[in-house]
Simulated scan of single mutants.
Amino acid sequence: MAFQLKPNRKESENKTIRFPVELIDRIDKAIVNQDVTFSSFVIQACEYALNDMDTSKNQ
């Protein structure tokens, strides 16, 4: 299934994370004219990656 942006979520906790500048630029370009924040995009991208991650190597 392709990655699809969803509306912002409510419950959250602050975490500090560093991103490469190039990645920040790519994310900023991806969310232009979308009804999504940078944080929401990152959360959704992480959820997508975790849901589609091959966990067979970890067992």
Rank of each mutant, 00 (worst) to 15 (best):
M1A: 12
A2H: 08
F3R: 06
F3N: 06
Q4S: 06
Q4K: 09
L5R: 00
L5I: 03
L5H: 02
K6V: 00
K6P: 00
K6W: 00
K6T: 01
K6S: 01
K6N: 03
P7D: 00
K10C: 01
K10T: 04
E11Y: 06
E11L: 06
E11H: 08
S12A: 09
E13L: 11
E13R: 13
N14L: 14
K15H: 07
K15R: 14
T16Y: 08
I17Y: 05
R18M: 11
R18N: 11
R18D: 09
F19V: 06
F19E: 08
P20N: 11
P20R: 14
V21T: 15
V21A: 13
V21I: 14
E22A: 13
E22K: 11
E22S: 13
E22P: 06
E22W: 13
E22L: 11
E22G: 07
L23G: 04
I24C: 08
I24A: 07
I24E: 10
I24R: 15
I24H: 09
D25W: 09
D25H: 12
R26N: 10
I27C: 03
I27D: 01
I27N: 01
I27L: 03
D28W: 07
K29C: 08
K29Q: 14
K29A: 12
K29D: 13
K29F: 11
A30K: 13
A30P: 06
A30M: 14
I31F: 04
I31E: 00
I31M: 05
I31Q: 01
N33W: 06
Q34G: 03
D35Q: 05
D35H: 05
V36N: 00
V36F: 01
V36I: 14
V36Y: 00
T37E: 02
T37G: 02
T37H: 05
F38Y: 06
F38I: 00
S39P: 03
S39Y: 02
S39E: 05
S39I: 01
S40F: 03
F41Y: 15
F41K: 03
V42I: 15
V42Y: 01
Q44D: 08
Q44C: 05
A45M: 14
A45Y: 07
A45S: 15
A45V: 10
A45I: 09
A45L: 13
C46H: 10
C46I: 15
E47I: 09
E47V: 09
Y48K: 09
Y48T: 04
Y48L: 07
A49M: 10
L50V: 14
D52N: 15
D52F: 11
D52R: 11
D52V: 07
M53C: 13
M53T: 09
D54H: 07
D54S: 12
D54Q: 13
T55D: 12
T55S: 08
T55M: 07
S56E: 14
K57L: 13
K57Q: 13
K57H: 12
K57A: 08
N58F: 15
N58R: 11
N58T: 09
Q59V: 10
